[in-house]
Design a protein around this nucleic acid. Structure first.
Length: 139
DNA sequence: GCCAACGTTGGC
DNA sequence: GCCAACGTTGGC
């Protein structure tokens, strides 16, 4: 199973809002970047992702699951971009901050570190495991 | 098709 | 609020 990292500014869409959407989840739209789009298109139902708060928190705060694969974003007038649906799985016991991620040698190749502006990123199995460990989420 | 200029993102 | 980095746009 592939893993992902999805970034959002808490002021526009926060983890709290995602969590409130519950099991039925919500769509994840607003992607306007082709690299991010390719990642969205590669997602499969059941894939898990980290929910990252940019700007204010700068931390991974929760885990989400893809519940619907890529489909056109009808709010995008250009018709070029689409979105997926996802639901909140759980909040991390302890958010993992960007500073902590940067300080962890095993995470030095994370896209978050090297290409911080990309809003939808792949996460390797190793990176997924390490971040969970740092969040106090064992297993 | 190249590349400079511009806009946006996001860390600090 | 500033600025660096990146992506996109548009002129040639």
């Amino acid at each position: 199973m592939a893993h992902w990292l999805l970034k959002s500014e808490p002021s526009s869409w926060s983890w709290d809002q995602q969590a409130k959407a519950g099991a039925k989840g919500t769509f994840w739209n607003g992607v306007r970047n082709h690299s991010a789009k390719l990642n969205l298109m590669a997602m499969k139902k059941g894939d898990k992702g980290f929910f990252y708060h940019s700007n204010e928190d700068k931390a991974v705060v929760g885990i989400v699951e893809i519940i619907k694969t890529y489909y056109p974003d009808h709010t995008d007038e250009s018709g070029k971009f689409g979105m997926v649906d996802l639901k909140a799985v759980k909040a991390l016991k302890k958010p993992v901050t960007l500073a902590e991620i940067k300080a962890e040698p095993r995470l030095k190749d994370m896209v978050l570190v090297n290409n911080s502006r990309l809003s939808v990123q792949p996460v390797s199995d190793e990176e997924w495991r390490v971040v969970l460990e740092m969040a106090g989420e064992k297993g």
